[in-house]
Amino acid sequence: MARIVLNDVRKTYGTVEAIKGVSLDIADGELIVLVGPSGCGKSTLLRMIAGLEGITGGTISIGDRVVNDLEPSERDIAMVFQNYALYPHMTVRQNLAYGLKNRNTPKPEIDRRIAEAAKALEIEPFLERKPRQLSGGQRQRVAMGRAIVREPAAYLFDEPLSNLDAKLRVQMRVEIKRLQRSLATTSVYVTHDQMEAMTLADRLVVLNGGHIEQVGTPIELYEKPATTFVATFIGSPSMNLLATPAPGAGWVLSGATHLPAGVATLGIRPEDLHLAEEGRDDAFRADVKVAAVELVGAESYVHGTLPDGTPIVFRVAGRSRIAMDDTMTIGAAASGLHFFDQEGARLA
């Protein structure tokens, strides 16, 4: 049980600044997901918390203890690696016991914890096997088990599901969430998969180029993205961004809706756009020529262009009869409009 606080944490590799001053307060028992594009510094930040990577500047504390100068083993954390990092020459049982033995945990206590974890993760049948005799999913569970038996103050996950197939990934995602809830242990989880991030997180941290773009609950990030980067990173397909003002672009704002001062970009999610109907009071209207239609089960995404050539994507429910080269008018309600300034920051 511990709160983790990062205070202006920095990391430089030679002249490359990988982490550029990150401050973050993670509450006890919270599941925080670090998400961002490849190379944004997610792993680096996690490894700094773990103690596998030195801290160039700032402080990291775990449970009111500054850990900057502590060894990984003294930080009371457990980590699940992307490639699982199971000890290949030990059986599953020995893998689980290793960290406890090194801490001189009494034998009966070790056995009790292994039995408990093995039961929770359903790996009891494999306890006497070597890691190479297990499937990817089973290895993943063992890696989780090795973290759980330690009963640490915090769990750190570095893309633990990225080596699994899509179906297993969804299943394990649910299971991790359930385990984390029942253990109520502070966790930091790294992923570049925004679906995984949205479904797992209590709070999401979107990283970009070594700094934090936004911190918030998945819903907050979805409804009120603080920057255009977050706006396009969260949600799929990503938000349409239209340059403003754009006379002759083929879209208009109507009624009581006006562009706020300083606006440079107008954002609308594909799911907030709909085909315009007579009598419906839309704040936003645009003429679209259809370029392609993407059917994804219960809904379709229509890819089109505005008269000035700007691409735009919108959602239509069900199997639509829209075909290529059709032209139509689409609209959006005022609540579906996001405004961003020149720097990409959200206005109001």
Binding site: A50, G51, L52, E71, P72, S73, I77, A78, M79, F81, Q82, N83, A85, L86, Y87, P88, Y98, G99, N102, R103, R146, R150
Partner: peptide, 13 residues
């Protein structure tokens, strides 16, 4: 693999 050594160092070895 480097991660094995890292896992061991987290495991207190």
């Amino acid at each position: 693999p480097r991660s094995l050594i890292e896992a061991a160092s987290i495991d207190g070895a």
